[in-house]
Design a protein around this nucleic acid. Sequence first.
DNA 1: TTCGGTACTCACCTCGTGGTAAGTATTGGG
DNA 2: CCCAATACTTACCACGAGGTGAGTACCGAA
Lengths: 117, 117
Amino acid sequence: MAAGARRGPYVCGIDAAMDVVSGKWKSLILWELNNYGARRFGELRRGLPGVSEKMLIQHLREMEEDGLVHREVYREVPPRVEYSLTEDGTSLNEALGPLGAWGTARRERLTIEQSGV
Amino acid sequence: MAAGARRGPYVCGIDAAMDVVSGKWKSLILWELNNYGARRFGELRRGLPGVSEKMLIQHLREMEEDGLVHREVYREVPPRVEYSLTEDGTSLNEALGPLGAWGTARRERLTIEQSGV
DNA sequence: TTCGGTACTCACCTCGTGGTAAGTATTGGG
DNA sequence: CCCAATACTTACCACGAGGTGAGTACCGAA
């Protein structure tokens, strides 16, 4: 949770990465921020159908502590907060690429099997 | 849990992949099986310090249902069961490569920061 | 006859994750 | 004067992941 090891010590790199990505919405947040650049809290909430405000904040805070996202506050009359990916967040997103491709291929495989049966 | 979608429908490929890898020991099992080829239940248990028999079985069963591991039973006097990766399991392990590399790099970064402070 | 080794199975319990719903501070608009 | 809209904060609760420890069936060895 705090900066540094959250649940470590880690057995291998996968551990360290999974620790940072595990969370129902984290990979989606990563994807959303990577696609749109900077997004406001409300935009993220509307962009992730089903997420609760509590979880969105909680995940964003953890990802900020983990150095994945940057939080920029604009002191305006209706408050404005923009979230964006840091360099680490961007590289993590890239590292998730092959996994996403594997998942997509798997989804297609399953769909074919289901329709085939 | 059952064959097909576990908690789906999935928003994207990452979802589908994370669904299959999420579980405290799954990535380690994947890694272990990938390194050693085929491993017996007891070998896996000894190779993953801290895992409980219940969780090991449970994860292996789920991974078998998900088509990641193959379970081969040899009807011998002390029973022998060998687990190995399927083609899907092997490709998943490969897809986890970049994530593992990212995690390893992150670990090194954190270690340097800690010793630096 | 009991013990050890295999690969499980089962019952029970804890605790963390995530959901729900309400409350907070600020200021402009009707 | 109250409401809307922003971005939270807080309290409470349910569920499931995961841990613990015991029991099972089989057989050979001591």
